[in-house]
């Protein structure tokens, strides 16, 4: 497995260019990343206005991870995420309407208003949940990979979680069994540097988190999570390993969130400085992709503007849809507890 071990890089260091992506593929990456960015900005606004309740964890800054990795998957693969799940849902193809309506708690939401921001589901897309307990969904994903292997399909199961989850027992128990049983699972650590307000160096004795895979003889890779091409190519390798060889991979995506842990957390000022946030904004995944596309002649300024207009209209429409959608009927309180009703 040593051949699969990439050398770790300092956060923010440039990554060698990934494989060339077609103009159409680049345009799709850009559309999805811009959609997620604008969706999250508007979700944050809606939260501030009291339209969205509960907890609300935004994905701004990490868009290349969900978009680049999901592009490597097949329609029948399984996906789970932590509670910072809006971006993953959109990248998997849930409509902005169904996600925004869920944030608003409406009946037309993807979880019919019963899950909210942290529990987005669309079983028809293999999108099996945002999960609210740190690390709780890691074994679930291995179970889906177990099911794929049990049925002898070549589906893979992908689990997204923040770097703080690598310190919890379920991560270690699951990685051991995934490697022991050769499950087609991909564990994607989105290392944004902070578990809530706790910096990685204050929580983990090991800073190169991908190296945790060594304990389980599992393949691993450190990836520049701000570079959508690098994310895609690393994910391609992991998907191939899972689908063809039925082996798991731990991918450490080095990324950064520009906003607070949740809406009640300021972007900077307590556990990190404004300068640090600004520094990371210099390697914004969307700006990097746009620069690449302009430089390669794939798109001009007018083209970028057209993408912006398209996603703006989509998000504005989603907000109107969410605003105007009805709440779940009162009787919905009692449904879906058990298979045959309460």
């Amino acid at each position: 497995m040593a051949g699969t071990r990439a050398r770790s890089r300092a956060k923010g260091a440039p990554h060698p260019a990934g494989p060339a992506a077609s103009p159409e593929q680049c345009r799709e990456y850009l559309r999805q990343m811009r959609l997620i960015r604008y969706f999250e900005e508007k979700a944050g606004e809606a939260y501030s206005l009291g339209k969205v309740g509960g907890f609300c964890h935004l994905y701004i800054g990490q868009e290349a991870v969900a978009v680049g990795s999901m592009a490597a998957l097949r329609a029948d693969d399984y996906i789970t995420t932590s509670y910072r799940d809006h971006g993953h849902a959109l990248a998997r193809g849930l409509s902005a309407r169904s996600v925004m309506a869920e944030l608003y708690g409406k009946a037309a939401g993807c979880s019919r208003g019963k899950g909210g921001s942290m529990h987005l589901f669309d079983a028809s897309l293999g999108f099996l949940g945002g999960h609210g307990i740190v690390g709780g969904h890691i074994p679930l994903t291995a179970g889906m990979a177990f099911a794929a292997k049990y049925r002898k399909t070549d589906q893979v199961a992908v689990c997204y979680f923040g770097e703080a989850a690598v310190n919890i027992g379920s991560f270690h128990e699951t990685l051991n069994m995934a490697a022991l049983w050769k499950l087609p699972a991909i564990f994607v650590v989105e290392n944004n540097g902070y578990g809530m307000g706790t910096a990685l160096a204050r929580a983990s004795s090991l800073l190169d988190l991908a190296h945790r895979a060594y304990s389980y003889e599992m393949a691993e890779e450190v990836v520049d999570g701000q570079d959508v091409f690098a994310v895609r190519s690393a994910m391609d390798r992991a998907v191939e390993r899972a689908r063809v060889e039925s082996l798991p991979t731990l991918l450490e995506m080095r990324t950064y969130r520009y906003v607070g842990h949740s809406m009640s957390d300021a972007a900077h000022g307590t556990y990190r400085t404004k300068d640090e946030v600004e520094e990371f904004r210099q390697r914004d995944p969307i700006k990097l992709l746009e620069a690449h596309m302009l430089e390669a002649g794939m798109m001009d300024e007018a083209g970028l503007k057209a993408v912006d207009e398209m996603i703006t209209a989509e998000v504005e429409d989603a907000i109107v849809f969410a605003e105007e959608s009805p709440d779940p009927a009162p009787g919905e309180l009692w449904t879906d507890v058990l298979a045959g009703g309460q």
Partner: peptide
Amino acid sequence: LGFAGIGVGAA
């Protein structure tokens, strides 16, 4: 914890 969760995921 791990194998209970693997069971839930398979279910």
